[in-house]
């Protein structure tokens, strides 16, 4: 698609003769365009670069000069901030918790959504279209509406971090993220499953393949791109979530994910930016790696979720 669009650019002015007024005007507007593009992009990155530099600068330097001076001599860089913040705060354990929360809370809703999406796409049952419509409606409902009743249900039935055995302590967040992640997951997967050619299903049926065979051998392998998008989306969403974690495991440092711990540090460290920037960067590197390596799928997920809607 981009090739077709790239063929025709005002800045290139390929037809005008060299050094003619049109040629100069075209070149100039090209220069302005590149300056604007690069300028905006650099400006956009300034906040991130700022904390990256700051996290490697010594405490005294951070408080006496702007981070941009890190680029001029004397070059003072240190790993002290990282070692200090990791040894004095709960961040290391929270890092573990973030994985323990994010991985099951990604697998469960994606799997359950895949089952449901398959039924919505390729099975007949009463009220099917109405139920699907309800799920599309639920997509917009603020999570806030569910906190009070769900939390009191969890407390009344001992589904809280303090009442559950180790390992299962994350259960309330897993369940909550499953409930909250399902409408979007079902919507995205059902749209994808429905677009699969129906001949596939007919010929599989003629071959005598059962429902399970069709699902695991045909539908899932063909849906790897959609599943990958959804998994990345859900994983990043949970890894970066603060609100749901605060509500369901908020007061428990031994199960709190990185976002909760980092938010607490911003209160306790105040202006201690040597530690805060290191902590923030520490919380960012997993999503950044996931994002940079799997960006294609992430973007595809966003497009499937919103353009088709």
């Amino acid at each position: 698609m981009s090739v077709a669009a790239a063929a025709d650019r005002p800045g290139t002015a390929a037809t005008a003769a060299r050094f003619s007024p049109q040629w100069i005007a075209g070149r100039l507007s090209g220069v302005v365009l590149h300056l604007a593009v690069i300028g905006l992009t650099v400006a956009w990155m300034v906040p991130t670069i700022g904390i990256l530099f700051t996290s490697f600068r010594p405490f005294t330097a951070i408080n006496s000069s702007g981070w941009w001076l890190a680029l001029s001599p004397p070059f003072q860089f240190t790993l002290d901030n990282y070692s200090k913040v990791l040894s004095t705060s709960n961040l290391g354990h929270s890092f573990f918790n973030s994985f323990m929360i994010s991985i099951p809370a990604t697998i469960i809703p994606v799997a359950i959504a895949a089952f449901a999406a398959y039924a919505f796409a390729w099975m007949k049952f009463p009220f099917r279209d109405w139920i699907f419509l309800a799920i599309v409606g639920v997509l917009a409902i603020p999570l806030q509406l569910s906190f009070v009743p769900v939390l009191s249900f969890f407390v009344a039935h001992g589904i809280t971090p303090s009442a559950l055995p180790p390992g299962l302590q994350y259960l309330p967040v897993w369940l909550a993220h499953t409930g909250y992640g399902l409408p979007f997951s079902i919507y995205l997967l059902a749209n994808f499953f429905r677009a699969l050619p129906s001949e596939l299903f007919e010929s599989a049926e003629i071959d005598g393949a059962g429902t399970l065979t069709v699902f695991f051998r045909i539908v899932l392998p063909l849906s790897v791109p959609a599943l990958a998008s959804l998994v990345i989306f859900q994983f990043l969403w949970i890894w970066n979530d603060l609100l749901v974690a605060l509500i369901y495991v908020g007061g428990q440092p031994e199960v709190a994910p990185l976002t909760v711990t980092l938010a607490n540090l911003t209160n306790s460290y105040g202006q201690g930016y040597h530690l805060l920037t290191a902590a923030a960067f520490f919380s960012m590197f997993v999503p950044l790696i996931v994002f940079l390596s799997l960006q294609r799928y992430f973007v595809r997920g966003i497009l499937a979720g919103s353009v088709k809607g």
Partner: peptide
């Protein structure tokens, strides 16, 4: 890709 919490720290800075 980054959390709104990290974003908050970045912009407070």
């Amino acid at each position: 890709a980054i959390s709104a919490v990290a974003l908050g720290v970045i912009w407070k800075f």
